[in-house]
Design a protein around this nucleic acid. Structure first.
Lengths: 337, 337
DNA sequence: ATCGGCGTCGTAAACGTTTACGGAAACTAT
DNA sequence: ATAGTTTCCGTAAACGTTTACGACGCCGAT
């Protein structure tokens, strides 16, 4: 089936009526609509995306930008796939499609986004892996592209965001360590300029200061956001003359490597060193069981989608008020700290 | 910057010449081309995707279809992110963009693909998670959409594919078990109808038969392709009266749960039961170290892209001969089996 | 001086769809 | 019977590009 023209000729109806029938307009006889729908179904006709969005000025596509490469920035594996699923449950109700915009590791993320949105590839965008000062915010704002972000940034153009409660994590983790009597407390800070790292470390420092404790530089460990990164941090910890007795980390993927590295150095998690981290499918079978924060990814996805719709012209009526939100995480107690 | 018309007016050049200048056609004065490119750069003009692809009949977009949801089918998603990166290194040379087509877990994959390609959303598609009889192959063939698949299927429409060497895995794993004196050998088969599971199990059965051994049904364990699935299989193994002394598995994500479940049941991996599986970033810190197969994901991505280009009209000249390929994996010996 | 060729550019027609507009028929109310 | 209203449908313009075609000016060759 080539196009709507063929379909119209085949039905001996005008092209305009066919289009209206397919798009659910009111001014079309129910009977002819039926005929059109049946023929379209039978012949496998689907409106061409380019023609449609050229005319309408919108594509019906929502882009979720992420970077490819061996090291996921920020979150681990199944994280995004679960979030996507939640996003889609909402978008599907509005006939919107979600695609992942994949930025190669060899391309500058800002340039990629510029190229992609200026083309008019997607109607709206969800950003993740937000940096401390994220130029993508201003770029999308300049282009008047509706967007939201999973994560805050110091650059703020007024868009909605949802961010995991890393500061709450810091509060609870640090208080927990202090209450357990720890005095030498460390933090693992994933490499790169992700804002979540800044937020977490700063809050940790604040909480410790409230208790008259310091967070010295030598207790802040930078790590690649991967299993190997965790392993390397463990080696670093083991090598330090002044060794922390408790560490908190914000990254899902580090922890397995961390456990392993510590054990090899004779430092037993949960006994010689307390650990508080993040829960994920990958961490659920560690032993000792990880004390960590978990969250509902599906719900998060739903909330993201609703926030996005609230800034998209034509959809604002449905979802409103969901502007900015700190996403709660719950502590699941294990034996690690 | 609205469109090419504005840009042309601003430069006082005809719209046709501007287009030719931007698209690198030969019949344009080098000096005016320079002017056009500078103005486009300065004003941030990028050709509208819909208009362009409507006229050209192609989009410049390659889709990689994957299913969202909490349980990744088959592979973990650091897997895909690494493969994507390899794919992109090749596609970028041809100004092709890769996007992930995300099929919601609540939508039928075949219907999703139908909807998406009939719209003309992408010029070509890469399929993954191929099923035993995958209707998507015929669908894409009917629509004359160039595509390749990561994984074989019994339905064959002549497209190129690349498949990991699961049969080679079966050969080596089974031979290894037999040589080590195992007589009760089991296989873990991920749920669903992925063809790789069939291929693996069948070949395991064949190899064992060569040695006069059987692969009874009670030694074939179906599992959810997730950490939890591995844990549940472990419990099942532990509960069986006739317990395998060696198991092979084909899935990256199962193994951590499997280890844990076995240990809880007092069955020590590498001692009481031999395990051969797949290596991934998540499995590298297991103890005892996993004996498993690994592969170069980046290279795999490159090969996928080249195969795809070889079936895309207009690109065939560059890449040829790469039609179907069993992708080798290398055994990394650990202490688990 | 004429002609062909080359380099450069403008014009206009497509690509497939949606939708504003207007018109024809049928129906309702007077 | 007439006017007004409603229901349905056809016509054509528009969306932003790319590209076939032709035109213009300039050069060198005859």
């Amino acid at each position: 089936m080539k196009g709507i023209r063929q379909l119209a000729e085949h039905l001996d109806i005008s092209i305009g009526t066919v289009s209206r029938a397919l798009n659910g307009k009111t001014d079309v006889n129910p009977q002819t609509r039926q005929r059109v729908l049946e023929a379209a179904e039978r012949l496998g006709y689907v409106a061409n995306q380019s023609g449609r969005s050229l005319r309408k000025g919108s594509t019906g596509v929502i882009g979720f930008m992420m970077q490819t490469g061996p090291e996921i920035t920020g979150q681990g594996d199944t994280f995004f796939m679960s979030v996507f699923d939640g996003v889609q449950t909402v978008l599907a109700r509005h006939s919107l499609d979600l695609v992942a915009l994949l930025c190669s590791s060899s391309e500058d993320p800002d340039a990629y986004l510029q190229r992609t949105v200026a083309r008019g590839f997607a109607d709206a965008v969800i950003l993740s892996a937000t940096r401390r000062n994220d130029a993508r915010f201003e770029l999308l704002d300049r282009h008047k592209i509706p967007f939201i972000s999973l994560g805050r940034s110091l650059t703020d153009v007024g868009q909605p965001w949802i961010d995991l409660d890393f500061e709450g994590m810091a509060e609870i983790a640090m208080e927990r360590f202090v209450r357990a009597g720890h005095r030498e407390i460390g933090v693992i800070w994933p490499n790169g300029d992700l804002n979540l790292g800044h937020l977490f470390v700063e809050r940790c420092r604040d909480v410790l200061a409230r208790h008259g404790l310091a967070l010295p530089d030598e207790h802040i460990f930078r790590a690649k956001p991967s299993e190997t990164g965790g392993y390397e941090v463990a080696q670093e910890i083991a090598g330090r003359p002044r060794r922390p007795t408790a560490v908190a980390l914000v990254n899902e993927t580090l922890v397995t490597g961390l456990y392993k590295g510590l054990e090899e150095a004779g430092i037993r998690p949960g006994k010689d060193i307390a650990i508080v981290g993040r829960h994920s499918p990958h961490t659920q079978f560690l032993s000792p069981a990880l004390t960590g924060f978990s969250l509902s990814l599906h719900e998060l996805g739903i909330c993201l989608a609703e926030s996005l719709l609230s800034v998209m012209p034509g959809y604002q009526g449905h979802y409103t008020g969901v502007s900015r939100r700190i996403w709660p995480m719950t502590l699941v107690e294990g034996a690690s700290g």
